[in-house]
């Protein structure tokens, strides 16, 4: 089997480039659970809530949380993005965390850019400060599509987030448009 062709976009995301037929062969694949590099912590929770300007006391007060059925602070769903790899800079000598790349980039397809279009999130139990998070993925579907930004495929991946007790806390099905840069009509001109 030949080595995959890799392309890196200006954001630093690395794409495996291939044909639609090659990509379709990946549908149904599942990845092994990988522990995210960072556990959930109070700073993650507050930082995330600050971006949403969310005053929900469950995210800000342990005392308030103790008065609820949760028994303490909990995290908004979105905090899982903060437990993943941080890409801006790390020292060269630091051991890289476990691979957390996603099927959105690793499935071979012609596209070399991403744009999110659809989300479906299910919450079964809240994440809490101190939780270590394990993520696995399933490649659900690949559908050819053309939007104003370009020609490509809608790729649907379902991610499963479990805590260190093995409880399924969150599933995150998202559909991303993976397209070939430079093939679109443009947002404005397609008006």
């Amino acid at each position: 089997m030949s080595e995959p062709v890799l392309e890196t976009d200006p954001a630093g995301y690395v794409y495996s480039i291939g044909t639609e037929a090659e990509g379709l062969q990946w549908v149904g694949r599942e990845s092994e659970p990988v522990e995210q590099p960072y556990p959930v912590d109070v700073e993650h929770i507050e930082h995330f809530a600050e971006g949403i300007q969310d005053p929900n006391p469950l995210y800000w007060s342990e005392e308030f949380g103790r008065q609820t059925r949760w028994g303490g602070r909990i995290a908004p769903w979105g905090v899982i993005v903060l437990t993943g790899e941080h890409r801006v800079w790390r020292p060269e000598w630091l051991v890289k965390p476990a691979e957390t790349t996603t099927f959105f980039m690793t499935v071979p397809l012609p596209g070399n850019r991403l744009l999110a279009t659809d989300y479906e999130i299910e919450c079964f139990a809240p994440l809490r400060p101190g939780d270590r998070v394990f993520k696995s993925e399933k490649l659900v579907a690949i559908v050819p599509k053309t939007f104003r930004v370009g020609v490509g495929h809608q790729v649907t991946v379902k991610a499963y987030f479990r805590n260190h007790k093995g409880e399924l806390c969150i599933t995150d099905s998202r559909t991303v448009f993976r397209y070939k840069f430079g093939t679109g009509a443009g947002y404005q001109s397609a008006g």
Binding site: F48, V81, L115
Partner: peptide, 8 residues
């Protein structure tokens, strides 16, 4: 705050 540095 989301550690989302996608340039877009």
């Amino acid at each position: 705050s989301h550690h989302d540095w996608y340039p877009g």
